[in-house]
């Protein structure tokens, strides 16, 4: 049995895939590699930059350490502003996304046209990044936190609206029918039959979006929409790396804490 030859009477060839399957698999593989290679080559990346990248990174690291702790007095206020932008933006979102979700949910929207409008607003809102929204609102309201708040809100509407609409579509129709059968008005049905069922979801997604928004708010200043991003951008452009490292540290702290708070609160709610 261990003489190194096949056993008589049994096939000694077994292939996992038929030749056709093998071919298709290789073609997929080649296709993916080709697309990736073509993309990289077409981008015209100056590879010689990589030659001294490690020197650059080491240089950067040296300049970043130690962080300039005294700069904290300057960034404390912008840091608070960052959190305010996220919080106020989420509050604004709450009031817009909430009615919009009822419009975009199949079982609560008045008719097909309103459903379509609701859906379209949600999709458009989600397709444009917060920073791009900020560009627009800076042009409208001028530089400052107001533009930031609206940018955060406009991006979050799509996110929250979609999740809330999905929650509305998945509600238990029983209580809704019971209330409708008492002859209550449409608004009453929504308030008494639907709302209590989706409130936990609404609170949960609001808090969840709030912690994403904290992260987003840290970069709004890059386009002038308020928050710590303004100082960060300025320090980076002045190559004040010890200030940059301090800001990166504080941003890290704020983001991690907000994520933690959000997780705790969401756990309490649900």
């Amino acid at each position: 049995m261990t003489d190194g030859t096949a056993e008589a009477g049994y096939p000694d060839i077994w292939k996992r895939f038929s030749p056709r399957q093998t071919l298709v698999r290789y073609l997929w593989f080649l296709g993916i590699v080709f697309v990736a290679v073509w993309s990289v080559r077409h981008l015209d990346i100056p590879w010689f930059y990589f030659l001294d990248a490690h020197v650059q990174v080491a240089d950067l690291a040296v300049r970043m350490i130690p962080p300039d702790w005294s700069y904290f007095d300057v960034i404390a206020q912008p840091l608070i502003e960052t959190i305010h932008i996220a919080t106020l933006g989420t509050i604004v979102t709450f009031f817009i996304a909430f009615p919009l979700a009822f419009l975009a949910a199949r079982n609560t929207t008045p008719n097909l046209a309103t459903w379509f409008i609701g859906r379209f607003i949600l999709v458009a809102s989600r397709s444009v990044n917060t920073v791009v929204w900020a560009l627009l609102f800076v042009a409208i309201f001028g530089p400052g936190p107001v533009a930031g708040i609206w940018a955060v809100a406009f991006r979050s509407i799509g996110f929250m609206g979609k999740l809330i609409a999905e929650a509305i579509e998945e509600i238990d129709e029983g209580p809704v029918e019971a209330i409708a059968s008492t002859g209550a008005s449409r608004l009453k049905v929504l308030l008494v039959g639907v709302l209590p069922q989706v409130l936990p979801v609404i609170y949960g997604t609001s808090i969840y979006r709030w912690d994403i928004n904290i992260r987003e708010s840290t970069v709004l200043g890059f386009v002038g929409a308020g928050g710590i991003g303004i100082q960060l951008y300025a320090s980076i452009n002045q190559f004040a790396w010890d200030e940059v490292s301090l800001m990166l540290l504080t941003i890290f702290g704020v983001v991690v804490i907000s994520e933690y708070v959000s997780a705790i609160v969401r756990q309490k709610i649900t």
């Binding site: 930059y49 650059q56 950067l60 970069v219 190559f239 990166l248 991690v256």
Partner: peptide, 16 residues
């Protein structure tokens, strides 16, 4: 933790 844009600007500073 860090927003893509922050990472992007650091890379812009290193690689142009």
């Amino acid at each position: 933790t860090f927003h893509e844009v922050i990472i992007a600007i650091l890379f812009v500073k290193i690689f142009g």
